[in-house]
Design a binder for these strands. Structure first.
Lengths: 121, 121
DNA sequence: CCGTGGTTACAGAATAGTGCGTAATTTACA
DNA sequence: TGTAAATTACGCACTATTCTGTAACCACGG
């Protein structure tokens, strides 16, 4: 995949929010600080490797803050940065949109454009 | 992977918006109706195949409307449905968030904004 | 033959999951 | 008392799955 120097910020946002986990992690982190194992419990379908990678990606994007406490057993906290917190309502808005428009999207009654290949006879 | 019947709508939204193209297509379609070849021109890095697939995904999600005009040479129009139009400002908001929080995300100095990156170009 | 919108077939790239290893301290238990 | 096992947050190597791209083909009127 080429590294196009995208002109629009939307492309850049999606570079970090794309995928199944980023928004979910935002969702769980908005309730407050969580540890690695908490996040794994919150959503058991993500593998530890991917969770670590996704968290690092979010950290590098400045959305999540990682705090490693010295000593053993290791303890690492994750929480949202200020930008991360500001992002949450936007993500929620997307979820709201999905629900609000459910009928409209599913029904697809949008118009009388039923001109479907009338090649029949 | 398993098909977890995701409890939260956010996961479902991301299922359709994830990836590089969906939001970009939204972006181009918000200016009005476009044909397949227009969209290819708008954004030359997407392959023929992927564009067709992405458009179909968006159509199935009820975000984009496909209108095939009978006759040859083939002609197909794409435009946003009502839900799709409502989605646009939300996507824009994400872009705005990305720009607004740029210093904060990059600098990660959550209390003071000191050096603004001067993009000299 | 060309151009349009789309599909299929195959290949290669990207992404995700599994399982093992690590570190220092605590606990388990004969 | 000694030794083994658990804990926590990963990293690494390997495999499995999925995604994306390329190329070719179809339909048809001109």
């Amino acid at each position: 995949m080429k590294d196009v120097v995208s002109s629009c910020p939307i492309e850049e946002v999606m570079r970090v929010l794309s995928g199944r986990w980023p928004t979910l992690l935002l969702y769980y982190l908005k309730n407050g600080t969580k540890r690695f194992s908490d996040l794994r419990r919150d959503n058991p379908t993500v593998s530890h490797r991917i969770l670590a990678l996704e968290l690092r990606k979010l950290e590098e994007a400045g959305i999540v803050r990682r705090t490693a406490h010295p000593g053993y057993p290791l303890r690492v906290d994750y929480d949202l940065t200020a930008p991360g917190l500001k992002l949450v309502p936007l993500i929620d808005a997307l979820g709201g949109w999905w629900e609000d428009t459910e009928d409209d999207r599913a029904g697809r009654i949008s118009s009388a454009v039923e001109t479907k290949l009338v090649a029949a006879e």
